[in-house]
Design a protein around this nucleic acid. Structure first.
Length: 508
RNA sequence: GCGGUAGUAGCUCAGAUGGUAGAGCAUCAGCUUCCCAAGCUGAGGGUCGUGGGUUCGAUCCCCAUUUACCGCUCCA
């Protein structure tokens, strides 16, 4: 395990050193769990995104794309369940390190008082037998009345404070009531804090509470709210899919592990709308389809596995993750979820708009079921990068670090290198470069020895290096060096494009 | 978020028990022209993570803060 953590560290520093990934705002010490993609990283990320788009949208006639805004109407997050699920005030006990919902702690305390009341009532009932009037007893018994008064008082304060988001008052109440941690038995509490997974900001006038909007915590809702627009304008018939890629934001309590868990990240999602009852068929279809996609990245299947969810989220009736064997272990890369009609149904309820599909064959309309494929772009980037990274010991005893990224995804496809920077070699190299540049991302370099330049290209994962030497001036042949084997062929310069192009297909 | 550890040039690190820092590699310029890194000459680059305090004086002591890592917690 120690060596794997070591490997992970090496990949992170390699990513920084070679312009793949930088800590955000690094000159100001960085911003926790936020990263920027550099010159080569942004190319790799874009190549992965483009390949996904091509696979999902371009190659499926019944899948279309959209690009929804990050800002959405606040009601969207009510309907999706995000607002209610993450508005709880939390408090930690510093001794037991346990976290509780502050309101639940107080409510538990209230329950104890209620129990006392019940006990009094039961005692009295036994004493008075059949003639016992519970209502009368509750209204007149001084002890019960006192307890009851306390309960009312506490409830008023608790819910009053919660409504005003006055968490200091909630903590004061907990301290005043002498509530102790059930585990440590101490009153050593932290402040009461709210952990809302969604980032919020103000839209328009800032002086009204109603101006608060959220940055989307997932891209899926942008697809659901556009369901009708897309279906009508693109004249889609079920089953059909809507795809999009884009940023999402989650205010994770603990965000760590480099690109794996970031507060700002990019998703690539496709929501597939199907006839209710057929969802399991499509769920299985997309599980298989998506796994094939991963394998086409040139990564062996031992690196992947499915993880089927036992405990299902409120919106799902089946769910599986595709996990990848990162240096930090097998972790989720993509989710394939059968979301039923939860989302469309909920939006239908909250918006009052009919989100249904009219089936011409059966003459009936229904709310479609949804099978979702949702993949993390940054995580896929990390998977590609960590699989590609390798250190090699060469026969001559030297070492090299190579990014064995498959050519289709590599940031730079071809390096153009004059063997020396005189005798007209740079000029000749430029001519060859000019012919390649319109089709391939190229990199020209004449500084340093040829060996050092090869190593630099290995380190950023460039699959081909074309070297122009003195013979090139005579017969227009060059040597083309292959990154992974380090072998060279001498070929006419006209053939370079064909050889490179041939390797840019998936799986090569 | 809690606890622990760390933060000296782009990278890897050294340093003095408080008197304002150095190496190798890298970078840049020139020479060398050599098909798989580390040839020669020269140059640039650090308010020792940031802010405050103690002190005649702090990179070194104290406090706060930030970032990273490890453990816990969390992850609809």
């Amino acid at each position: 395990m120690a060596t794997n953590e070591d490997l992970f560290r090496k990949i992170i520093s390699h990513a920084k050193e070679y312009g793949y990934v930088f800590p955000s705002s690094e000159i100001y010490d960085g911003l926790s769990a936020v990263y920027d993609y550099g010159p080569f990283g942004s190319e790799l990320k874009k190549n992965i995104r483009d390949y996904w788009w091509r696979s999902m949208v371009q190659l499926h006639e019944n899948i279309v794309g959209i690009d929804a805004a990050i800002f959405m109407h606040p009601m969207v997050w009510k309907a999706s369940g995000h607002v209610d699920a993450f508005n709880d005030p939390m408090i930690d006990n510093k001794d037991s390190k346990k976290r509780y919902r502050a309101d639940v702690l107080v409510e538990d305390h209230l329950q104890k008082i209620e129990d006392k009341i019940t006990k009094e009532v039961e005692k009295a009932r036994q004493r008075f037998g059949a003639s016992f009037d519970e209502k009368m007893f509750r209204e007149t018994n001084p002890r019960v009345k006192e307890h009851q008064g306390k309960v009312e008082d506490i409830k008023k304060r608790l819910y009053g404070s919660l409504d005003k988001n006055d968490f200091a008052a909630v903590k004061a109440l907990i301290e005043e009531l002498g509530i102790v941690c059930p585990i440590s038995g101490t009153r050593n509490w932290t402040e009461v804090r709210q952990f809302n997974l969604m980032f919020s900001t103000q839209m328009g006038s800032v002086n009204e509470d109603s101006g608060e909007i959220y940055l989307r915590p997932e891209t899926a809702q942008g697809i659901f709210v556009n369901f009708l627009n897309v279906m009508k304008s693109a004249r889609m018939k079920i089953p059909f899919g809507i795809a999009q890629t884009g940023k999402a934001f989650r205010n994770e309590i603990v965000a760590r592990q480099f690109l794996f868990r970031m507060r700002e990240f990019e998703q690539m999602e496709m929501q597939y709308f199907v006839k209710p009852g057929e969802e399991m068929k499509w769920y299985e279809f997309w599980k298989e389809e998506r796994m094939k996609w991963h394998l086409s990245l040139g990564i062996p299947k031992e690196k992947y596995r499915f993880h089927t969810h036992e405990k299902l989220a409120h919106y799902a009736n089946a769910a599986a993750d595709i996990e990848f064997d990162f240096p930090i272990g097998f972790k989720e890369l993509e989710g394939i979820h059968s979301r039923t009609d939860f989302d469309l149904g909920s939006h239908q309820k909250y918006s009052g708009k009919k989100l249904q599909y009219f089936d011409q064959e059966t003459n009936e309309s229904y709310v479609p079921y949804v099978v979702e494929t949702s993949i993390g772009l940054d995580r896929t980037f990390l998977a590609v990068l960590s699989h590609a990274y390798r250190e090699e010991k060469l026969d001559d005893g030297s070492e090299r670090v190579v990014l064995g990224i498959q050519p289709m995804l590599a940031p730079i496809k071809v390096a153009v290198l004059p063997l020396v920077k005189k005798d007209g070699l740079p000029e000749k190299a430029r001519l060859i470069m000019d012919r390649l540049v319109p089709e391939f991302r190229c990199f020209y370099e004449e500084k340093d020895t040829i060996g050092r330049r090869y190593r630099r290209m290995d380190a950023i994962g460039t699959p081909f290096a074309v070297t122009i030497d003195h013979q090139t001036l005579q017969d227009d042949t060059v040597t083309i060096r292959h990154r992974d084997t380090m072998l060279q062929d001498r070929i006419p310069s006209k053939e370079i494009a064909g050889i490179v192009r041939d390797k840019l297909a998936p799986g090569k």
